[in-house]
Lab assay of single mutants.
Amino acid sequence: AQVHVDGVTYDFDNPEEAEKFAREMAKRKGGTVEVKNDQWHVE
């Protein structure tokens, strides 16, 4: 699973880890999390 944050792509073998990371980053940035094509996007 991939997580996109500020133009940087992070690869995770485990989708749950990807989701956890995406939500944590969004919380830190005060942003939102979107899922597109099985990829997490932190805005």
Rank of each mutant, 00 (worst) to 15 (best):
V8S: 05
D6R: 05
E43A: 13
K29S: 13
K36C: 15
K29N: 13
N37A: 09
E17L: 08
V5E: 01
E16L: 10
K36D: 08
K36P: 03
D38Q: 12
V3M: 02
R28W: 11
Q39N: 08
Q2I: 09
K27R: 12
H41V: 13
D13A: 11
D6S: 07
H4E: 07
T32H: 12
D11R: 14
E43M: 15
K27P: 00
H4N: 07
R28L: 14
T32F: 12
A18N: 00
Q39D: 06
E17H: 04
F12P: 00
A1T: 14
M25W: 08
Y10E: 00
A1H: 14
R28G: 05
G31S: 09
A26V: 05
V3W: 02
T9G: 01
R23E: 06
K36Y: 13
G30K: 07
V42L: 04
A1V: 13
E17A: 10
K20I: 10
V3N: 01
T32N: 07
K36I: 14
W40T: 04
W40H: 05
H4Y: 13
A1S: 13
D13E: 12
G30T: 04
K27W: 10
K20M: 10
E43F: 15
A1I: 13
K29V: 15
V35I: 13
K20F: 08
E16Y: 12
E19A: 08
V3Q: 01
T32Q: 09
G7E: 02
V8E: 07
A26I: 05
N37K: 08
N14E: 06
M25A: 05
V8I: 13
E17D: 13
F21T: 00
H41F: 15
P15V: 12
V35L: 14
E16A: 12
V3H: 01
G31Q: 07
V5A: 06
D13Q: 10
V33P: 04
D6I: 02
E17I: 06
G7Y: 03
D6H: 07
V33G: 03
E17M: 06
A18F: 01
E16S: 11
P15I: 11
A22G: 00
V33L: 11
M25D: 00
D38G: 15
V5G: 01
Q39R: 09
W40M: 06
H4T: 13
V8L: 10
E43P: 07
H4A: 05
E34N: 13
E19M: 08
A1M: 13
H4K: 08
K20D: 08
D13F: 06
H41L: 09
F21A: 02
Q2D: 02
R28Y: 11
M25G: 00
Y10Q: 00
G31T: 10
A1N: 13
E34A: 14
V8T: 09
V8D: 04
T32L: 09
K29Y: 15
V33F: 08
A1G: 08
Q39I: 14
F21E: 00
E19F: 07
E43W: 14
V42G: 03
E16P: 01
T9K: 07
G30V: 03
R23Y: 12
G7M: 02
K20G: 05
H41W: 15
K36V: 13
D13L: 10
Q39P: 05
N37C: 15
N37S: 07
G31E: 06
E34G: 09
F12Q: 00
V33Y: 07
V8Y: 11
K36G: 06
D6Q: 05
V5D: 02
H41I: 14
A22L: 05
D6L: 06
K20Q: 11
D13N: 11
K27Y: 12
D13Y: 05
V35Y: 15
A22P: 00
P15Q: 10
N14Y: 06
T9E: 03
Q2L: 09
E16Q: 10
A22M: 04
Q39K: 10
V33H: 04
R28E: 11
M25E: 08
D38M: 12
V3G: 01
D6Y: 10
V35Q: 12
N14L: 06
E16G: 07
V3R: 01
W40N: 03
G30L: 05
Y10R: 01
N14K: 07
K29M: 15
E19S: 03
N14H: 07
D6P: 01
P15T: 09
G30A: 06
F12N: 00
A18Y: 02
Q39E: 09
K36Q: 11
E24N: 06
V42E: 04
R23N: 08
G31H: 10
V5W: 07
E24F: 08
Q39T: 11
M25K: 01
V5Y: 11
R23P: 00
E24S: 07
G7F: 03
K20H: 08
K27L: 12
E17P: 00
T9P: 03
Q39L: 08
T9I: 14
E43R: 15
F12Y: 01
A22W: 04
D38F: 12
W40V: 05
D13H: 07
E17W: 04
D13T: 09
E19P: 00
F12L: 05
K20N: 10
E19L: 09
H4L: 13
Q2F: 08
E19H: 04
V5Q: 01
V3E: 01
A18I: 01
A18D: 01
A1D: 04
A18R: 02
P15W: 13
T32E: 06
A22S: 02
F21S: 00
H4G: 02
E16V: 11
E19G: 03
P15D: 10
A1P: 12
D38I: 06
E24Q: 08
D38V: 04
K29I: 15
V8P: 00
W40A: 04
E17S: 07
H4I: 14
A22C: 13
N14P: 00
A22Y: 03
V8M: 12
K29F: 15
Q39W: 05
G7P: 01
E24P: 00
T32D: 05
D11G: 08
A1R: 13
K36F: 13
Q2S: 12
E17V: 04
R23D: 04
H4V: 15
E43Y: 15
Y10N: 00
E24Y: 11
N37H: 10
K27T: 10
F12V: 00
Q39F: 06
V33W: 05
T9M: 08
G30W: 06
Q39M: 13
W40S: 03
Q2R: 14
G31C: 15
R23G: 02
D6F: 12
K20P: 00
E34Y: 15
K20A: 13
D11Q: 14
N37P: 05
E43G: 12
M25Q: 07
E43T: 15
K36E: 09
G31M: 12
W40D: 04
T32V: 11
V42Y: 05
D11V: 14
W40K: 04
T9D: 02
A1Q: 11
K20E: 10
P15F: 11
E34Q: 13
F21Y: 05
V42R: 05
A26E: 03
D38S: 12
D13M: 09
E16F: 11
K27Q: 13
D13P: 12
V35D: 04
Q2A: 08
E17K: 05
F21M: 01
E24H: 06
Y10D: 00
K27V: 11
E19T: 02
V5R: 02
E16M: 10
E17Y: 03
K27G: 07
E16I: 11
T32M: 09
F12I: 01
A22T: 01
F21N: 00
R23V: 07
F21K: 00
N14S: 14
F21Q: 01
F21H: 01
W40P: 05
R23F: 10
A26Q: 06
T9Q: 08
V35A: 06
H4S: 07
F12K: 00
E34W: 15
K29L: 15
R23H: 09
D11C: 15
G30N: 10
E17C: 15
V5N: 02
A18S: 01
E17R: 02
V35K: 14
K20L: 10
G30Q: 07
A18L: 01
M25F: 05
A22D: 00
F21I: 00
K36A: 08
G31N: 04
V5H: 06
H41C: 15
E19R: 06
V42M: 04
V5S: 05
W40R: 04
D11K: 14
D38L: 12
F12G: 00
V42S: 04
G7S: 03
D6G: 10
D6W: 08
A22F: 03
T9W: 12
K20R: 12
E17Q: 09
G30H: 09
N14G: 07
N14F: 06
V5P: 01
E17F: 03
A22E: 02
Q39V: 14
R23K: 09
A18E: 00
H41Y: 15
R23Q: 08
H41R: 11
W40I: 08
M25T: 06
T9L: 08
V42T: 04
G31W: 13
W40Y: 12
A22I: 03
